[in-house]
């Protein structure tokens, strides 16, 4: 009975969705045409997605970082933190040696993705997740007590708060320079030559702060999930 009602509901939903998709009107795209034609001049970043995320819609990105912060806080409150539980899996020497061989390269990839975010695909979120995966791989392979000794939980929460506060402070620079909050080119910062590493004003610094914040937040989430009463 329950499956019958569910099937009827799902078929109705599918019909509505498909008719909506196939009769969707082709809207006017003035805003994206403006971004494509003058995005490089306005922001100095040749990757338009980074230009939208960290310049035109930087306030949205601040909200997204707040969501990650709230999720990490909720996880840390939900899961008790008295006793630390080791994973039941034991790995051989080959796994441990190859993981410790991979880790420096992962660090380089993460930093490359963060600092070249305005020139190539990548950015603060991707690089931050790659940096968080270093902590996660260490935790899975060597156990959580070793991982907590290498990167202390106090350091992780400090890095997360540093990233969040740094993002807001770089946003306030725009107000001090005479523009709006999170303003970059409008406030008169030097945009440099598009395509070079030190171009596009404040975008690389905001990228770095977001990367720190995402890396610390996701590793805090993982270590909170792994703990047990």
């Amino acid at each position: 009975m329950r499956k019958l009602i569910s099937s009827i509901t799902v078929f109705l939903l599918g019909g509505i969705l498909l008719t909506t998709f196939f009769t969707m009107p082709e809207g006017a795209k003035e805003l994206s045409d403006y971004y494509i034609s003058s995005g490089v001049v306005d922001t100095g970043a040749i990757n338009l997605i980074t230009a939208i995320l960290f310049d035109y819609r930087g306030f949205d990105t601040l909200g997204e970082a707040t969501v990650i912060f709230a999720a990490a806080c909720t996880l840390a409150f939900l899961v008790p933190k008295q006793k630390v539980h080791m994973l039941s899996a034991r790995f051989s020497v080959i796994v441990q040696q190859s993981i410790s061989f991979i880790l420096p390269f992962l660090f380089v990839i993460g930093m490359y993705l963060i600092f070249y975010g305005h020139l190539s695909p990548g950015g603060g979120f991707t690089g931050g997740v790659v940096l968080a995966s270093i902590v996660i791989l260490t935790t899975i392979t060597f156990g959580i007590s070793y991982s907590d000794r290498q990167v202390r939980p106090r350091v992780k929460s400090l890095l997360e708060s540093f990233g969040a506060i740094g993002f807001v402070i770089f946003g306030l620079f725009g107000i001090f320079a005479g523009g709006a909050f999170l303003a970059n080119g409008q406030a008169g910062f030097d945009l440099g030559i598009p395509g070079e590493l030190t171009s596009s004003g404040l975008i690389p610094y905001i990228n770095f702060m977001t990367g720190l914040k995402v890396a610390a937040g996701l590793s805090i989430m993982f270590t909170s999930l792994i703990k047990e009463e």
Binding site: N47, P121, F125, T126, V129, L218, L225, I226, E228
Partner: peptide, 26 residues
């Protein structure tokens, strides 16, 4: 969409699977 592909590769294929496996382990 190379940006979306990178984020999907790192987040949805990597981190989320790690979360699920840890949960199943517990």
């Amino acid at each position: 969409a190379p940006d979306v592909a990178l984020v999907e590769a790192v987040v949805a294929t990597g981190i989320t699977t790690g979360f699920f496996v840890i949960t199943l382990n517990k």
